[in-house]
Structure formats: C-alpha cells, structure tokens
Design a protein around this nucleic acid. Sequence first.
DNA 1: TTCAGCATGTAATATGTTACATGATTAG
DNA 2: CTAATCATGTAACATATTACATGCTGAA
Lengths: 181, 181
Amino acid sequence: MALEHAILVSLRERSATGYDLARRFDASIGHFWSATHQQIYKVLARMEQAGWVDVAHTENGGRRGKKTYSITSSGLAELTRWVHEPSTREAVRSDFTVKLRAGLDFDAIRADTETRLADHREQLAAYETSEKKFYPDPTNLTANEIGSWLALRGGLSREKHGIAWCEEILANLPHSNGETQ
Amino acid sequence: MALEHAILVSLRERSATGYDLARRFDASIGHFWSATHQQIYKVLARMEQAGWVDVAHTENGGRRGKKTYSITSSGLAELTRWVHEPSTREAVRSDFTVKLRAGLDFDAIRADTETRLADHREQLAAYETSEKKFYPDPTNLTANEIGSWLALRGGLSREKHGIAWCEEILANLPHSNGETQ
DNA sequence: TTCAGCATGTAATATGTTACATGATTAG
DNA sequence: CTAATCATGTAACATATTACATGCTGAA
C-alpha cells in the first residue's frame, strides 16, 4: 500500500518521469523502499486514474512520448492522510537468518556473512559521505531537511547494527565440513 | 522463495501440523520470517507435491482429519542446497521511514515513533528473557544451538538499533501544527 | 556503427493479504 | 452452554518479480 506514497514523497521533491523515479528507487529512496521500473509504471497509471498525479506529455516525433508526472493537491491530501495513520509493523523476512537458524553448514554461512559484512561497510561509508555532504551541520536544519536527515540516520544506524551482528557471527561460528547435525 | 525453507527448518526441529507451524510463525520463527496460516497451508500443499515433506493423517471420525507434516530426505537435501546459495539482499520496505522522509506532520511522526519505541522495548525485553532462559552460558553451546543463538543475537541487536534510532528521532524532531512545508 | 543510457511498457508468474467458511474439542 | 483454542481450508484481491519487447538519442 505504500509504493504510491513513496512515489508521492519523491514527486513532491521534484516532478519526474517513471524512468527518473526508477533511478531514484535505485539510489536515495531505495534505501528505505525498493521498487522496479515495471512496478513503478503500473502504480503510476493507477495513481493517474486516482487523480493523485498529473501527466505532462512530451511529444518527440517518435512513437512514444516522455511522460512527466507531478503531484496534485489531491495527491498531497492523500499523502497527508496517510502520514496520520499509525504505521504498520514491518514484516520481517530475512532469508539470511533462516539460513543461520538452519545450522546446516557453517562454512557457507561464514562466506555469506563475509559478503554481507562487506556490503554493510560499503553502504555505511556511502551514508557517511552523504551525511557530510548534505547535512554538515545537523544542529541547523530546516523543517524540510530534518525528516530526510533522520531517515539517513536510521540507515547509518541500521548498517552499524548489521556490521556488529556480522562481526559477532564471524567471531562465534565454529568451522565445519558441510553438515553439522 | 524462502517460506518453504523456513518451514523446512522448523519441521527439522520437530514435525508439526499447519496450525502448529502458524503458531511458531507467530512466535519464534516469526522473529525473522512472518507468514499467515493461509499462506502456510498453500505452501505445505506445494511442498508435499515436491516431495519435501511427508504427511501423516490422523482420522478422527469427523469430516476433516489432522495432518502432521515431517521433513523428508529430499526436503533436507533441498534445504542444504539452498543454504549454500549466497543469500539475497533483503528488500528494504519501511513505510515508517517514508513517512519520516515526507516531512509532513511531525506530531503524527512523534506519536508513531513513541509507539514503535514501546514495541521495540517490549520485544527487546522478550529477547533478553529468551536469552537468559535458553542460552544462559553462550560460551558453551552445541553446534545445533549456535545458529539459533546467533539469530537471537541478531534480534537483540536489531531492537537495540531500533530503540536508539527512535530516541534520536524524538530528540531531534521539532513540534509542529500539522503541515510543515 | 555500436553500445550505453533514456524511456515506456506487456505478460506470465509468484507471493502474500484479507475476508470468509467450517467443524471438533476442551476448559470454565 | 459458551467461549477459546485446535484445525483446515477457499476465494478474491493486491502486490511484486522475472522475462520479454520496443525504439530513441548521443557519445566513442
């Protein structure tokens, strides 16, 4: 139910094509909501029907024109309504933890954990760079910036937790030859 | 793709009916993989077709008998195969963060954050109780227990991160009267 | 001219949620 | 007898993934 709302948040920052949105979902917004371009196009069509977004067509001779979407007042009203709903608990689905819990091949888990640890470190470094670049003085933010900064802080915290957990796993996992039953 | 595998892990610990599994997914396994009974029944039927589980019917005069599922050697082979696959990055989908990023009504976000903070604290306390009860001496675990203990440690870490982030939000969120644009 | 990036989508499939439905057993 | 828990499912709908498909533009 929330891809719509993530798109509205993004369009409120700047109008965009479906393609632009897909790129944003690969980068900034993707840090807390993931979506593919196929899903985005489907949802945009639905949102247009609902009147939450307007479309500006750019005809360019060729067959298919570019479509630039922007948020309408009705879209903003919907976003505001939704922000007032208490948020649902996120469903936890971690296949990594299922694998860990299986206790079936600690060498495979170890390798997997090392990959994840490297990922987390890379992501943490990217967030730290973003924070320095966009929020060098967090004591002095506009109302608009605070939400984005706190979202970024959540990402930083999440990666740090992920790193600490991976390190704990690596420190405690015994070595094995395949099955450990 | 992993509900099957979460079920296999659970059945490997002890055979169960769909109903039993649903309860486990509300409790222990649910801490890292959530599923409803409807979804579990659908997937169990598919797993039976695939030969990953066996069914023992308990006829009890009445119309519908109880079905007790247990893992087969083929199911264990599949689980082992899957554990060796590198795990996929979990798709992040946090509607709370989308709301935060929207920057639209900090009082609503504050209330939401307080609810989440209370949830996280409750969950952390539950994990801490579990740890004391089931793993009083973590330096002395069997191979089988280590995976479960590390999964629990991940839960503890996740809740601690959640608490710290909520506290940071509450400390930094300004007060507002509705729209803050 | 070829390849990367821009730009839009359809189709098939998989997965998950919500609402609805049934009936047995057990504890108060 | 009545309510909770045990136990199994169907149906409709919503959401997301994967594979496929098309065509333009600009740089090397």
